[in-house]
Write a protein that binds this DNA or RNA. Structure first.
Length: 542
RNA sequence: GCCCACAUAGCUCAGCAGGAUAGAGCGACUGCCUCCUAAGCAGUAGGCCAGAGGUUCGAAUCCUCUUGUGGGCACCA
């Protein structure tokens, strides 16, 4: 049980002993020293129901509060009705051996032990290189997977793609058109064709490998394109430090009959009907505003059908938790998938759809409308080449998923050596350097250091911060968003840099040096574990 | 027109199970290396938290409306 939970419990006990009913017991860190280390606004929130002034309630609770001097030096009220705690520094000091003992496992938990999770992300169709837009998805998905793993989940990272639909057909046609273009034959480029140069490269390599006499409509055009582009996508993902455990494609569900079975089951429930030559899903019967087309009059199913079959497959695979990382453009469509699954009697409570807002790309101060088809994009590879993986990964998770992300490509390049991510890494590198220096002087601080020597306010502030790491990691699991970890690490690094300036670690005072070495070792563990979760390196030197 | 997000410093954004004086980075300005890495620290300037109502002891945070931005409302995915 951590400090806040402990105090929370004691507050509730004290409140009940005072004959009052506790209500929303929230404990926060005090911003101002004169309010102690931690505070609760409990009396304020109780005032109305208790029909007493908040200050009076505070006095009653404090009166009943079990004061353990080893933990709490002082507990006192302050207007308009807060209860403040002054924590015994020995509590904070005692964190050091705990953290050093825990090492890599500090901040991890067993919340998800024995449970499985499936995280579906990226899922870009292989029609072109991965762009900045996909990058946000990729990094979010991978980082969220890391967070789950930190809490004991066994995670399957999964990439799903549509290889049977219109997009891929047009891709094949685009390659074919380029192929005949190279052969100086008069062909018309498809209206919605993919215009990127990579299409020409693929056409060239087909010509080298398969000769110049291919007929129009030869499946090699699409197959080769898919293969080449997919290899490229996998390479880009590797560059980002991301690997997938499983790739699943749409075709599978046509081949194994899942899609037919799915449609038949809906039909048996009278949730499907024919109109205007198309097959419709009766979503209005299930409370939606409009019905949806499932099979077009051309005979081609819409993406909803295989997507739903795919989700059923994921459910059947028995995961305890299923996560989808989708762009905001899916906000309106994924509920239809869940709806159909529910209609078939499947539970979808364990599916969490995480929507992120779009990335706006700015170049020369102007918005660039990105389009894979029109070959108007900045690729992940270009970005990684320019600023490095760590900066790219950091950039994509430093903002909340619900914020539109403005990506100013010029600014990213200009400020690449002045980036917030270096602030974190620098703290880690500084620590490594000091530890090395200490070792050079024969200081190990592995045992026997005296933690009670750490009394400087900068030391206590740093200690408070590293003690909160497990809470932050638990929060990240709850909300499934990495951003709080980023903010936390920024704050931790700031506290370390302040400590670095205020308190010299290696001095003539050997006892103090050993104690401070232990402190920075604990800090290093937290920084390193946090950065690792984010997929960002923690360099030994910079 | 309808639905979903968002609106906070010059710029990019935190803060939002309601709490004590609204934060950070970048940019601007001022200081700090005889001392473990100055990729750092300290400080100054910069805000009617989009606007208007409401709930509350108390609102950047919750509710309603208005305005603006992004996304969706396809027999595209």
């Amino acid at each position: 049980m951590n400090l806040k939970e402990n105090l929370q419990k004691k507050l509730i006990e004290a409140t009940e002993k005072a004959g009052l009913i506790p209500h929303s017991v929230i404990i926060t860190s005090s911003k101002d020293e004169k309010h102690g280390d931690l505070s609760s606004s409990l009396p304020l929130s109780m005032a109305k129901a208790a029909q007493k002034p908040p200050m009076e309630i505070a006095a009653l609770i404090i009166d009943q509060f079990e004061k353990d001097k080893n933990l709490i030096l002082d507990i006192f009220p302050s207007p308009p009705g807060f209860i403040n705690f002054k924590i015994n520094p020995s509590f904070y000091q005692s964190l050091i051996p705990i953290i050093i003992d825990a090492g890599d496992s500090y901040g991890r938990s067993e919340t998800g032990k024995g449970k499985t999770a499936n995280v579906e992300f990226v899922s870009a169709n292989p029609t072109g290189p991965l762009t900045i837009g996909h990058g946000r998805n990729a990094v979010l998905g991978d980082t969220i997977s890391n967070i789950l793993e930190n809490h004991g989940y066994e995670v399957t990272r999964e990439y799903y793609f549509n290889d049977a639909g219109r997009q891929m057909r047009i891709l094949g046609q685009s390659v074919e058109a380029r192929y005949y273009e190279i052969l100086k034959q008069d062909v018309e480029f498809p209206e919605d064709g993919y215009q990127g140069n990579y299409i020409k490269d693929i056409a060239h390599s087909i010509m080298h490998e398969n000769g110049e006499n291919l007929k129009s409509g030869d499946p090699i055009f699409k197959e080769k394109a898919e293969k080449v582009i997919f290899a490229d996508i996998e390479k880009s993902l590797r560059n980002l430090g991301i690997h997938f455990d499983q790739f699943t494609n749409e075709k599978t569900f046509y081949k194994n009959g899942e899609i037919d079975r799915f449609l038949e089951e809906l039909k048996a429930k009278n949730l499907i009907y024919e109109k205007d030559g198309a097959t419709w899903f009766r979503a209005t019967d299930l409370g939606k505003e409009q019905d949806r087309v499932y099979i077009k009059s051309t005979g081609e199913p819409t993406y909803r059908v295989p997507d739903t079959a795919y989700h059923r497959d994921k459910i059947n695979r028995g995961f305890d938790l299923i996560i989808d990382i989708f762009g905001a453009d899916h906000a309106d469509t994924y509920p239809d998938v869940l709806l159909a699954l529910n209609a078939l009697g499947l539970k979808t409570d364990h599916i969490r759809v995480l929507l992120y807002q779009f990335v706006t790309l700015l170049r020369n101060g102007e918005k660039v409308k990105m389009s894979t088809r029109k070959a108007n994009y900045v690729t992940i590879d270009e970005l990684v080449d320019e600023v490095g993986v760590d900066v790219v990964r950091y950039f994509f998770i430093m903002r909340g998923m619900n914020s539109h992300l403005n990506f100013d490509i010029d600014a990213a390049a200009d400020s690449s050596d002045n980036n917030p991510v270096f602030y974190l890494q620098y703290a880690h590198a500084r620590i490594c350097n000091i530890i090395k220096r200490g070792e050079g002087l024969g200081m190990k601080s592995s045992t026997g250091y005296d933690i009670t020597l750490l009394t400087h306010s900068s030391e206590i502030e740093l200690l408070k911060s590293i003690g909160e790491f497990p809470e932050i990691m638990a929060l990240a699991l709850k909300i499934l968003e990495p951003q709080d970890i980023v903010n936390y690490l920024q704050d931790l690094a700031a506290r370390f840099h302040r400590f670095y300036v205020d308190c010299r670690v290696i001095t003539d005072d050997e006892n103090l040096s050993e104690a401070r070495l232990a402190l920075i070792k604990a800090t290093k563990i937290v920084l390193s574990n946090g950065l690792k979760t984010l997929g960002i390196t923690a360099p030994e030197r910079m």
